[in-house]
């Protein structure tokens, strides 16, 4: 289950920098599929933050054509995610998942930093 080091795992990293966010496999699969259907090569997907919406902040997800100089990079299940420096503090330690509901589907971040959601769920206070 939990991947202990096997085989070529002997190539240890000096001091692995931990990932800023966790990405579920389901989310990664979906990102992969969307990147494939985008119709042009992408560097990955960038997670940003925007300070509008009814209670202050909301995440954005956009295709990224290149890595920004200050972007935090996360590799998970074979996909590359970039985190906008402005978003890093907010998103640190969250989990990105993909959910399918009856009428809609999309990505969701579970954020232990989050204090309150507005009714719409699109915005959050930190």
């Amino acid at each position: 289950m939990d991947g202990s080091l096997k085989g070529n795992g002997g190539k240890t990293m000096a001091r692995p920098r931990p990932q800023a966010i966790n990405v579920t496999e389901r989310a990664a699969e979906r990102v992969k599929a969307l990147l494939a259907s985008r119709g042009k090569p992408s560097f990955g997907v960038r997670i940003g933050i925007r300070t509008k919406g009814c209670s202050g902040l909301s995440y954005t997800l956009e295709f990224a054509d290149e890595k920004g100089p200050l972007d935090e990079m996360v590799e998970a299940h074979g996909v590359t995610l970039l985190i906008d420096p402005k978003a890093t503090m907010f998103i640190l330690g969250t989990e990105m998942d993909y959910v399918e509901e009856k009428l809609q589907s999309g990505f969701v971040f579970t954020n232990p930093n989050e204090k309150g959601r507005c009714g719409c769920g699109e915005s959050f206070h930190v």
Binding site: V31, G53, T60, E62, F63, S105, G106
Partner: peptide, 19 residues
């Protein structure tokens, strides 16, 4: 609300408008 991936700069603002 669930998030979708958009083209760079194309993310619609929350509640369909930024207002």
């Amino acid at each position: 609300m669930l998030l979708q991936i958009h083209e760079p700069g194309q993310t619609p603002t929350p509640h369909a408008t930024e207002r």
